[in-house]
Amino acid sequence: MLEISNLNKSFKRKFALDAVSLKIPKGEIYGLLGPNGAGKTTLIRIVNQIISADSGKILFDGQLMSSEHLRSIGYLPEERGLYKNMYVLEHLVFLAKLRGLSSSDALKNSKFWLDKLAISEWSNKKIEALSKGMAQKVQFIASLVHNPALLILDEPLSGFDPVNVELILKELKELKANGKTILLSTHNMRSVEEICDRATLIHDAKILVEDTVWNLREKSKKGTYTIRFKGNMIAFVNALWTDFELLEQTEIGEQRFLTLVKMRGERSMNDLLNALMGEISIEAIEECFPSMQEVFIELIQGKESSYEK
């Protein structure tokens, strides 16, 4: 859907993007991750042609990107605003028309989305009368009212209460199911785990890592398992012996424990089960995958410590 090659951008001799390349496949939700100031917003602005790159190219559906493609893109910026003295429906129609819709289509689509997000009764209210969350919903609708093929969302969940976060995530999944491609820039790692197919991590203007979310977590796993069992803790520790290391233990009931165990050497889960069987009664065992939050922190910290070296 979107292919970015060797994109460079600098402001006052400071690199904002340094040879950034990535591919966003059609129909996927793509997470754009990175600490503040990494270059995510610059990249998004270049894709939206709000600013231009110093060098590099962007292909949209295989074609060199031009202003014509902007009609196929929906954009929700991180720092977004609305005209406070306009009415909700009037504002949505105005923005939809700017994206190339006719007046009648703009009106029809705006009403559809106001209904879908259950704020149609606010259609004739002024923006200044809306709560922050309500205004966020209007901004979210504004980004997709023209039915774009690619949706670029910069921190779409900030400012929403948990109920509305779920609502927006559900809408994003539905959009994906309808064949839309979504580029999601967020610090909300739970949402990345939940809805993103792929993610890229930008740090200091460079792409640090790019893969599927599952692979990113897989690559960062530490060979740890959580085990819930019934039995004697001494027998459990003895069974682990030198092949496994007990990292954490929590007594959750009488003779019932929740533990975190790490493999040593080339040991597998089967080895662990063989060692424990007969010593304790295993209730549950699961390999531990790091959260995206942990992956993110580890990658950033790892990069920074490598710089320090």
């Binding site: 042609q49 709000i50 202003s67 910026p77 977004r80 605003g81 609305l82």
Partner: peptide
């Protein structure tokens, strides 16, 4: 005002 309330970024995604 458009700059300070940040609507300008929404607009600039549609117009030059």
């Amino acid at each position: 005002r458009e700059k300070s309330n940040r609507i300008v970024e929404v607009l600039l995604a549609s117009v030059k």
